[in-house]
Design a protein around this nucleic acid. Sequence first.
DNA 1: ATAAAGTTTCAATATTTTCTGAAAGTTTAA
DNA 2: TTAAACTTTCAGAAAATATTGAAACTTTAT
Lengths: 183, 183
Amino acid sequence: MEISEKNQSFVYHFGEMGSKWGFNRTVGQIYALLVITDKPITANELASALSISRGNVSMGIKELQSWQLVHVSHIPGDRKEYYHAIGSVMEMANTVFEERRKREVDPTLSLLRNLLLESPTSDSEKYAQQRMQDIHDLLEMITNWAAELQKLSPEQLSTLMKLGTGVTKMLSVKKNLFSKNKD
Amino acid sequence: MEISEKNQSFVYHFGEMGSKWGFNRTVGQIYALLVITDKPITANELASALSISRGNVSMGIKELQSWQLVHVSHIPGDRKEYYHAIGSVMEMANTVFEERRKREVDPTLSLLRNLLLESPTSDSEKYAQQRMQDIHDLLEMITNWAAELQKLSPEQLSTLMKLGTGVTKMLSVKKNLFSKNKD
DNA sequence: ATAAAGTTTCAATATTTTCTGAAAGTTTAA
DNA sequence: TTAAACTTTCAGAAAATATTGAAACTTTAT
C-alpha cells in the first residue's frame, strides 16, 4: 500500500506528535493511517506502508486496542484481520480524553486522597498539604465536569462551546434569577 | 534539605507522572518540590534533596522557566538564586494548559490548515481530507473555547463547572428564548 | 492429523532520552 | 583585575524505550 504525499505528511506529523499525546511514533503513525483511510487495512499493509516490521505493527495495534481506538473486521474467505479506526472524530476525542484521564489523572487523585487523610505534623507539612488539597480539588472539579460534558450530545456540546464567553452572561442571569431564594 | 516521607511520595509520583505530562522525571520532581515548599529553594538544595547532579537541576529549572512555571528571587547579600513555583494552583493549571496547547495542538492545527488548502485529487484523498477537516474543526473549536474559558475569573469558572449538567438546561432555556427570532 | 495462513511474543539490538560532572561562563565585591 | 561564588553548557555515559525478526503460537480447511 502506498500513501499519497499529503497523507504522508499527516501520518508523519501524527507520529511525531504521538509521543506528546501518550503513545509512541509507530502507534501514532498506524493510528493516523487508519483514521484517514476509508477501507480497513491489514497488518501487512500497515507494515509495508509505514516501513516497519510486522511485529511492531502487532504491538502497535495491541496498544491502540487498549486505548479502544481500533476495531477488527474480517472478510469472508479471507483469514486476515482488517483494522480500522473506531467512530467519528468526536468519538475518538472522547475516547482519548477518557483514556488519558484514567492513565494520567486518576492515579494522582487517588494518591492525593491518601496523602490528605493524615494530618500535618509541622508548619511546612501543613503548607504542603494545603497545596495538595488545592491540586486535588481542582483535578476533581475538572474531572467531574469533564464527565458531565461527556454526557452531552455532540450538538449540545458544540452549542455550548460556540457560545464562548456568552456563558458568563448566562451565569450572571442565573445568579440574578435565583439570588432572591438565597437572600 | 531533607523531605518528609509524605512529601517524598508526592514528589516521586509527580516524577513518574511528569513524563506523561510533557516533561521528564527530574523536571517533574523539581516542580513538585517547589510547589509544596513554602520558602524558595536554591539549586544546590534541590540537587541534594532529589539526589541529582547540579547540572541536571540547572537544565530542569531552565525547562520549567520555558514553561513559565518557576520564578527566581534573591536574598540581599546572598548571591544564590532562589526558586519557587509561580502563583496559585489555578494559575499553574492555566499555564500548563496554555503551554501544552502551544506545543501539542498549535503545530497540528497549522499543518492541517496547510493540507486542507489543496483540493483532493481522488476519492481516497477526499475521504482523508474530510477526516482532516473534522479533526481541524474539533481542535479549533476546543482551542477557541479553552481561550474563552481562560478569560473567566476563577470564581466564574468554578460556578460554571459546578453547574455540571445544569448547563444543558440553560442551553435549552436559551434555545427557547431565542427560537422565535429564527423561525 | 497436518499444513497453510495468519498473529503474537520476546530476546537481542538500535535508537532516543536523560543524567553526570568537569570545564567554561558570569557576576559581584574588594 | 582578580578571585570567589555562583550558574550554565555539553560531551560522554547510563538508562529507558522502541524495533526487529525468528520462533512459538493459533486458527481454519482439508
